[in-house]
Simulated assay, not measured.
Amino acid sequence: MKVLVSGGAGFIGSWTRRELLKRGHQVIVFDHQDRRHQLADGEEFFLGDVRDATAVTEAAAHADGIIHLAAVLGTQETISNPRPSAETNILGSLNVFEGAAQYQLPVVYAGVGNFWMRDHGTGSYTISKSAAEDFARMFNAYRQGGRITIVRPVNAYGPGQSVAAPYGTSKVRKILPALTCRALTGTDIEVYGDGTQVSDCVYVEDVARAFVTALEYTAANGPTEKPVEVGPAESCTVNDIASLVAKEAAQVTGREPVGVVHLPMRPGEVPNAVVKADVSTLQQIGMSAADFVSLEEGVRRTVDYYATQWLPGFIPAA
């Protein structure tokens, strides 16, 4: 297949493209950032924004399937400024679904991994991503050509994920880069809340495999009956993750493990939250969480990446 990957220049998009190429597919990278210089053999680039219905439809005309990853991310970031997430995550997704329906293309939509938050302190990210899920179900039920499978990964992490301030330029703070950069620089890890909240993480390579497998399934069989939830077989707390990161960073740097500092929770975060996946849904596409990279191994690979690729070039602010 020739697969259009919206948001293909991003973190998960880059890993998904590699998985597609590994399986012999061709790739159209659809992104609003011009990253054509990063293309590999078998890839082409389409500069565009999912909010532009004409651009999306034109790109869809050249594809055999779509993996829709483009989104505005963030919890408190989208609460303080919800309009961009509504425009991209809802209207942008509608443009993708319309373009795919016009050409009867199979679609995999990256749904909301923290679906639990929909009923427990909903922020704009969850609202907008959940709304697009509802539209996907509408297209499947009532629109000719509706062939959309929803795939919900929990917190994806791994090499290449962007780093937020004060260690990088990303506007969105993600858990593994935030913890890892502090630990590698000898700074105590900051955890919001008491750290007992469940916040499952899944290695990005496994997420990419799930997206591509789901698209291949949908192309052959139509959409899955239920959303496919992608996460680890065993859950963990934020304190568990922090402890693993501190331990791995200490082994890399040769220093004593850093400590953990607990801070007040931020807007959009809920005490005793449970962000986890129903991994039994993976069976719909012939996958099992038992085959995923373990958290211990994933954290080791991730810490090693930041230690070798990020830390040497990091210059602390004056």
Results as ranks from 00 to 15, higher is better:
residue 87 E to C: 00
residue 87 E to T: 01
residue 87 E to K: 00
residue 89 N to D: 11
residue 89 N to T: 06
residue 91 L to C: 06
residue 91 L to H: 12
residue 92 G to I: 04
residue 92 G to V: 03
residue 92 G to M: 05
residue 95 N to S: 06
residue 96 V to D: 04
residue 97 F to N: 05
residue 97 F to D: 07
residue 100 A to R: 00
residue 101 A to D: 02
residue 101 A to T: 02
residue 103 Y to H: 13
residue 103 Y to F: 14
residue 105 L to D: 12
residue 105 L to Y: 04
residue 106 P to N: 09
residue 107 V to K: 03
residue 107 V to Q: 12
residue 108 V to L: 02
residue 109 Y to E: 12
residue 110 A to M: 10
residue 110 A to P: 10
residue 110 A to K: 11
residue 112 V to C: 12
residue 112 V to Q: 08
residue 113 G to E: 06
residue 114 N to W: 02
residue 114 N to V: 03
residue 116 W to P: 12
residue 117 M to G: 15
residue 117 M to D: 14
residue 118 R to A: 15
residue 118 R to F: 15
residue 119 D to C: 06
residue 121 G to A: 07
residue 121 G to Q: 04
residue 121 G to L: 06
residue 121 G to T: 06
residue 121 G to E: 04
residue 123 G to Q: 13
residue 125 Y to W: 10
residue 126 T to F: 05
residue 129 K to L: 06
residue 129 K to T: 09
residue 130 S to Q: 03
residue 130 S to D: 12
residue 130 S to E: 06
residue 131 A to E: 11
residue 131 A to W: 01
residue 133 E to C: 09
residue 133 E to N: 06
residue 133 E to Y: 07
residue 134 D to V: 14
residue 134 D to S: 13
residue 135 F to G: 03
residue 138 M to H: 13
residue 138 M to T: 13
residue 139 F to V: 08
residue 144 Q to D: 10
residue 144 Q to N: 11
residue 145 G to H: 03
residue 145 G to D: 03
residue 147 R to K: 12
residue 147 R to C: 15
residue 149 T to C: 05
residue 149 T to F: 01
residue 149 T to K: 02
residue 150 I to Q: 10
residue 150 I to E: 09
residue 151 V to Y: 02
residue 153 P to K: 00
residue 154 V to C: 10
residue 155 N to Y: 05
residue 156 A to H: 08
residue 157 Y to L: 13
residue 157 Y to V: 14
residue 157 Y to M: 14
residue 159 P to Q: 01
residue 159 P to W: 01
residue 160 G to S: 08
residue 160 G to W: 09
residue 160 G to T: 08
residue 163 V to W: 06
residue 164 A to P: 10
residue 165 A to H: 13
residue 165 A to Q: 14
residue 166 P to G: 08
residue 166 P to A: 04
residue 167 Y to T: 08
